[in-house]
């Protein structure tokens, strides 16, 4: 019997409130609302690692306007929940990306954009290249060299679907 499901709460009111809160966090109307809210506030951190950043900028600008999907590039990592690895990362840059990722508050997601972030692209044999999955938990891969802004938009849509699919884990349960 998980999380007090099926119990009748009597007596200690504080305990009852806590348990019912934990119960409701996993249940339909609450998770749906939270998922809807998160879906339309996917704020990526503005960190340009490589040349795919030009396509990223085009995707966020008026012609393609990903802000209508809630995709608003943000300056500081503390206010963001999405990181887009834009193309190839060297060992030196990968450490910076990892540090930015660690500064972002949970829940957070990762999009690996471009062939270089997926498997190295034209630099697949280079000593100085590290691919995104080696240092970040990647949610969505966007192929292309570079991907067009529409491709990035599709990646964002897929990420939104994924967030909605896994919405029961969106609110972290309280540590006791």
């Amino acid at each position: 019997m998980a999380d007090g499901e099926g119990l009748i709460f009597l007596g200690n009111l504080e305990e009852v409130a806590k348990k019912s809160l934990e119960y409701l966090k996993k249940k339909e109307p609450i998770t749906k609302m939270v998922s809807w809210g998160v879906n339309f506030s996917l704020w990526p951190v503005h960190l340009m690692t490589s040349c795919c950043g030009a396509e990223f900028a085009a995707a966020a600008s008026p012609r393609f306007d990903l802000e209508r999907l809630g995709f608003l590039p943000f300056g500081g990592p503390r206010q963001t929940n999405l990181i887009v690895v834009e193309g190839t990362t060297t060992w030196k840059m990968a450490r910076v990306v990892r540090r930015v990722y660690d500064q972002m508050p949970a829940p957070k997601w990762v999009i690996a954009m471009g062939a270089c972030a997926m498997d190295g692209g034209i630099f697949w044999d280079s000593y100085n290249i590290v691919v995104a999955r080696d240092y970040l938990p990647v949610d969505v891969y966007v192929p292309g060299c570079p991907p067009r802004p529409e491709a990035l938009a599709r990646g964002v849509m897929m990420l939104k679907e994924k967030i909605d699919r896994e919405r029961s884990n969106l609110i972290p349960s309280e540590q006791r």
């Binding site: 060992w91 990968a94 450490r95 990892r98 540090r99 660690d102 000593y127 590290v130 080696d134 240092y135």
Partner: peptide, 12 residues
């Protein structure tokens, strides 16, 4: 004659 071992390198 450059060679390297990728397992030596760490991101974090």
């Amino acid at each position: 004659d450059f060679t390297y071992d990728k397992s030596e390198l760490k991101v974090a």
